[in-house]
Design a protein around this nucleic acid. Structure first.
Length: 278
DNA sequence: ATGCCTTATTTCATAAGA
């Protein structure tokens, strides 16, 4: 089985490149993130022509995740139990008095950041973690809450799913070696101890980091900022991850970052990870 | 070479990304 994960940064803008890439790379299961596409507008017919069944979760302008599969898509979960939404903090104390009339402030709806499906006997999650913006901000607290809830939900599912893989854009670089210059990230999100601890707790569930081979250079970066020629200088980050249970990780005989997909005109700012399983 | 931000929308400006 060939498994892949890719933050496409809009499936609408990326569809021609995605279809070309699917036809060339021929993955059996693909986790997509940042589709930026409502579920009812997902291009199911276009990917269907290449043999894929799609499960999509999307709510509009931002976020959005999907799973494409040639080996079946069953038991689809849109989001996970206990998944938090982003709570807009009250600007003024008077807002607290209005809580009863604005329940969405108290219990915000989860964003479209997680979709799970069983594909050919493998439990697959496509995940798009919140960015966090700035340490200490409400968005950062939300990011950590989201990871904590994800851990709880996956822990529950792992009790009955020995073959699971959680793929996606985790928006955290696991270690200093996973960013092009640790000094450039001091004070930024993606590298803080709390974020790295959130990843460590996922690994503590028995999920193994399937580190892909870089096609160039020593670091398997998966993201390069569009600006300032960062890709061309290989100033990237490893923030897209494949976390697999031992039963799955032991069967990975090859995994690589397809940085060719980051080249040329109109790429995503992320490259796909491709993993081949026996 | 790989080439110096991109996306969708409440669009000609803004919010968000990491």
């Amino acid at each position: 089985m060939r498994l892949a994960t890719w933050n496409v940064n809009s499936i609408g803008a990326r569809l021609p490149r995605l279809l070309d890439w699917l036809a060339t790379t021929k993955p059996d299961v693909v986790c997509l993130q940042e589709t930026k596409c409502p579920a009812d507008r997902f291009p199911v017919a276009e990917v269907g022509e290449l043999g894929y069944t799609a499960a999509a979760h999307g709510d509009g302008r931002w976020n959005g995740v999907a799973i494409l599969s040639k080996v079946g898509v069953e038991q689809v979960s849109k989001g996970f139990p206990g998944e938090p939404g982003f709570a807009v903090p009250p600007a003024e104390p008077t807002l607290l008095d209005d809580m009863d009339e604005a329940p969405e402030l108290r219990m915000p709806r989860p964003e479209a950041r997680a979709i799970g499906a069983t594909c050919g006997g493998l439990r697959v999650w496509s995940l798009y973690a919140p960015n966090g913006r700035t340490p200490g901000s409400p968005h950062y607290a939300y990011k950590l809450d989201w990871f904590a809830a994800l851990r709880t939900a996956l822990a529950d599912e792992l009790r009955r799913e020995p073959r699971m893989v959680a793929c996606g854009d985790f928006n955290v670089a696991p270690a200093d070696v996973d960013v092009w210059d640790p000094a450039a990230f001091i004070g930024s999100t993606h590298v803080t101890p709390a974020e790295r601890q959130a990843l460590a707790k996922l690994r503590g569930l028995g999920l193994h980091d399937v580190v892909p081979t870089p096609m160039k250079g020593p670091h398997p970066f998966t993201y390069w900022d569009y600006r300032a020629g960062m890709f061309h200088q290989n100033k990237g980050m490893r923030i897209d991850l494949v976390y697999a249970t031992a039963a799955v990780a032991d069967r990975v005989h090859a995994a690589y970052v397809d940085r060719d997909a980051r080249k040329g005109k109109g790429p995503s700012d992320h490259a796909p990870i491709v993993a081949d399983l026996d």
